[in-house]
Design a protein around this nucleic acid. Structure first.
Lengths: 209, 209
DNA sequence: TTGACAAAAGAACGTTCGTTCTTTACAGTT
DNA sequence: AACTGTAAAGAACGAACGTTCTTTTGTCAA
């Protein structure tokens, strides 16, 4: 019974059986705990079987299905697909509703989606409401790429009078200014030079918990 | 010369030398490529040294410094700290500026921060402006946990008349309703039963590129 | 120039690993 | 009851692995 009961609709590798999907789930659980794919002997325990050669056969099929791969040194490692989050094809209309059509689409790893250069990226919690009209709320987490240059229109973390602040960078009569996205707050016109700490490249919000 | 030139200010383990920081960087680079910590022999190449026993000594120190650990089976695995993003202690005041004091604080892995149960979490792009007053913009990515129950006040992805929509769940005279966060849009009062696809647990925004 | 110590190398060894090949168990079909 | 294919088990083996212990190299201070 090969693929008579496919595990899900995002894989159609011919030799990937529904039982393999169970093995994949167990491997994903183990990896989620330990961030490592263990030896064949250990995988016997993880999979609940007793045969190393069968473990190898399973991993080979998981590899052909694109969930894991081997380094040039023969070490099994996960692929993107292994631990990625599915991105639904249908977007939700926050405006008008749209038909429920497609199911599974692309995959994304959130971390990789938001971070280009990890060593230069930092997370900064946002306090206050001065950027609320830009959809940046108190409690949001700003993903900031540290660099001291920015373009007009960028939202930047600037250091003004030795203080951090998050504002939109703009130019007024040849001088850089920092513009809040809240009419209750004043535009900041730095007296001396304007020092840029970094540029906002992403935003994270976590609800409830 | 132990720690005469510390690698950075977020670690003060007594036996963690500045050279160990270089080894850590090389290990992080390798791990970033292969998502795996290889054998001691391979690490000799990675570190540019020739001694397996010295590799072990290095890994032991990295372990004591909290960057890696061993599974019960002896496999080296990274800790959170190994590949985490720093979270600045000072928040940025989107409102009023705050002094620049602290430097490095906690660490977070964005993926783990936003996702509790990977298998039930999906990403859905947001289209339209009906939730804009909740700071949810066109083009944002909704992190949605798939489940069919929700509480009043939750922002939910609901299926109304076979259509997806993102709204705040509310109750009106004993009936569930879906409330937009934009006065230009109408409250949705489902005729039949209201089907919940999932609950919004997070939001991601990516600026520019 | 000797001593002391850290950094690194090297050798030796028992264990574990992945691989290959052969064999068994089981279910469905004829 | 025999056939067929899949799923799994098991044995055997050389290579690779981690560990431990000993030795060398380099550097600074006395």
């Amino acid at each position: 019974m090969t693929d008579s009961n496919p595990p899900s609709d995002f894989n159609s590798s011919p030799d990937f059986s529904s039982r393999d999907a169970e093995y994949l789930a167990k491997l994903q659980d183990y990896y989620s705990d330990w961030k490592s794919i263990p030896s064949y002997a250990k995988l016997c325990e993880v999979f609940g079987i007793a045969s190393k050669s069968w473990v190898k056969a399973i991993l080979t099929r998981l590899s052909e299905a694109g969930f894991i791969e081997r380094t040039p040194d023969g070490v099994w490692v996960p692929t993107r697909q292994f631990y990625a989050r599915p991105l639904a094809e249908s977007s939700v209309q926050a405006g008008m509703p749209v038909s429920v059509t497609a199911t599974q689409g692309e995959f994304f790893v959130i971390d990789e989606l938001l971070v280009d250069t990890p060593s230069k990226t930092t997370l900064i919690p946002v306090r206050g409401d001065s950027m609320i009209e830009a959809g940046i709320h108190d409690g949001d987490i700003a993903v900031v790429e540290k660099r001291n240059v920015a373009n007009v229109g960028d939202i930047v973390v600037a250091i003004v009078d030795n203080e951090f602040t998050l504002k939109t960078l703009d130019k007024e009569r040849g001088h850089f200014i920092l513009r809040p996205a809240n009419q209750a707050f004043p535009v900041i016109r730095p007296q001396s030079t304007l020092e840029i700490f970094g540029v906002l490249i992403g935003l994270i919000r976590k609800y409830r918990k």
